[in-house]
């Protein structure tokens, strides 16, 4: 890892260079009253003074809808045509927060443990992550409670931290980060004298995730779930803004003769998610679905994939139409 410095204006020059190389840049932009990730077309649209985007950058690696294959009947046979992965664009995730970058590891664990998901793996290979550390946080942020931090470098290829008005520390963390430096070495200055710690948001640790993990192991039938999930409306807002949630549905579209197979986001919060063809639903009420969400993130994923399913970005709490605040839910559970 090497440390350099870069000025705000030079960051724009770097991004312009990447755009001129036909790289797709996902970056935070103001859309109406919200700030959200979207493909960057004009550098004027870029914003970095927000706390958190509404959606995570997950869609750049795991799109809400994507084609897996095409099928066509040929006589008695069915021809399958796998997705052509050679034309996946090189892409840059810019302005991801350290929590977003930390979410790439658990997301990858889902798609690449045991079996390699070829589309995901190829997309990740072609993705460069330029994160920007958090200078501010809000009451929904809890990265430090789940082992992440406002200046955490995990998952990033290049991490920028603002030190002075327009001066940033640039931590070059991987070979892809090094490639960015080599692309335009003249944009980067020497390592600044100052360290980043004093410039990072102070995110209070709200709970001990290991204690949560241990308590969940014996809490499947705890009365807590029924009480606490009364307000849950049963939508997928929390899952769809989450940088880690990775459940999906497979749908075929077309006719018996030809069509395509699509993968699209799904959520354990939705009643249909576990509905069997027989009509039986093992998670027949919302409290069981809410329990599944908590269990999956804080119990099953650490046990099975050695990854927590939560990076503390707080998006679920901000998006929930019934204010099911995750920090409070965890705190209440730990005291229940």
């Amino acid at each position: 890892m090497q440390k350099r410095s870069i000025r705000r204006a030079q960051i724009n020059v770097l991004l312009e260079k990447l755009l001129s190389l036909h790289q797709v840049i996902y970056a935070p932009q103001k859309l109406g009253n919200q700030v959200d990730f979207a493909p960057l077309r004009d550098l004027q649209d870029l914003t970095l003074d927000h706390i958190q985007t509404v959606r995570s950058a997950k869609a750049a690696l795991f799109p809400p809808v994507e084609e897996l294959l095409r099928y066509q009947r040929a006589g008695v046979e069915t021809e399958l045509q796998d997705r052509d992965l050679t034309n996946l664009a090189e892409q840059v995730l810019f302005g991801t927060r350290p929590c977003d970058a930390a979410a790439i590891a658990p997301l990858s664990a889902v798609f690449t443990t045991d079996d390699q998901d070829a589309i995901f793996a190829r997309r990740l290979e072609r993705t460069t992550v330029i994160s920007v550390s958090c200078e501010r946080s809000d009451g929904d942020c809890f990265c430090t409670s789940v082992g992440v931090g406002p200046g955490d470098s995990r998952g990033s290829d290049l991490l920028l931290t603002r030190l002075q008005d327009d001066e940033y520390l640039a931590e070059i963390l991987t070979a892809k980060g090094e490639a960015l430096l080599q692309l335009a070495p003249e944009l980067f200055g020497p390592e600044p004298a100052e360290s980043k710690e004093a410039h990072l948001a102070k995110v209070q640790k709200r709970f001990d995730w290991e204690a949560l993990h241990d308590k969940l192991a014996g809490a499947f039938d705890h009365p807590f779930w029924l009480r606490t999930a009364l307000a849950c409306l049963g939508c997928g807002a929390c899952a769809y803004v989450c940088p880690v949630c990775s459940c999906f549905d497979i749908q075929d579209e077309g006719s018996q003769k030809k069509g395509r197979r699509l993968r699209s986001w799904d959520s354990c919060g939705l009643a249909l998610f576990t509905l069997h063809a027989s009509g039986h639903n093992p998670r027949s009420i919302q409290s069981q679905r809410w329990r599944q969400r908590m269990m999956h993130k804080f119990s099953y994923m650490p046990d099975q994939l050695q990854q927590l399913g939560c990076v503390g970005c707080g998006r679920c709490s901000r998006a929930c139409p019934a204010d099911m605040n995750l920090i409070e839910q965890v705190e209440n559970f730990l005291f229940a």
């Binding site: 809400p64 409306l233 939508c235 997928g236 807002a237 769809y240 959520s267 939705l270 139409p321």
Partner: peptide, 10 residues
């Protein structure tokens, strides 16, 4: 729209 169905749920 990413079809979270929050509109329907609410």
């Amino acid at each position: 729209c990413f079809k979270c169905y929050a509109c329907r749920a609410a």
